[in-house]
């Protein structure tokens, strides 16, 4: 019942999400324009990216209002594979770069 109610009109939530997404985009662009240290810049933009993705998934795609098994299927399926992809590939990429500079 909660899921069905959650899928009804929620304009205020949609526009609040839209404003937050725009604000985060502005933060990312400002961080890009400022000469902040590389690590700080990466932390800011990657965090903003993950928050934006979560907001779109939770509010626009209604995952927050779906049954937990459906939400978990999507989130775990995508996140786990994404993490495995990057965790397995990135060390190799660094190693090859180091080898090619020798």
């Amino acid at each position: 019942m909660v899921a069905k109610a959650g899928l009804l009109l929620r304009p205020r939530l949609y526009w609040a999400t839209w404003l937050t997404l725009l604000a985060l985009t502005v933060v990312m662009l400002v961080a890009d324009g400022l000469s902040v240290p590389r690590l700080a810049f990466l932390v800011v933009v990657l965090s903003a990216m993950l928050v934006k993705a979560s907001l779109i998934g939770a509010h626009f795609m209604h995952l927050r209002f779906e049954r937990l098994p459906l939400a978990l299927t999507v989130i775990v399926g995508l996140l786990l594979t994404g993490v495995i992809l990057f965790a397995l590939i990135a060390p190799d990429a660094v190693r090859i770069a180091a080898m090619s500079h020798r």
Partner: peptide
């Protein structure tokens, strides 16, 4: 991003 917000409203209005 704006088109995503308008789409969310389209879905909300369609379900109402």
């Amino acid at each position: 991003i704006s088109s995503s917000a308008t789409m969310a409203n389209a879905v909300g209005a369609a379900r109402d």
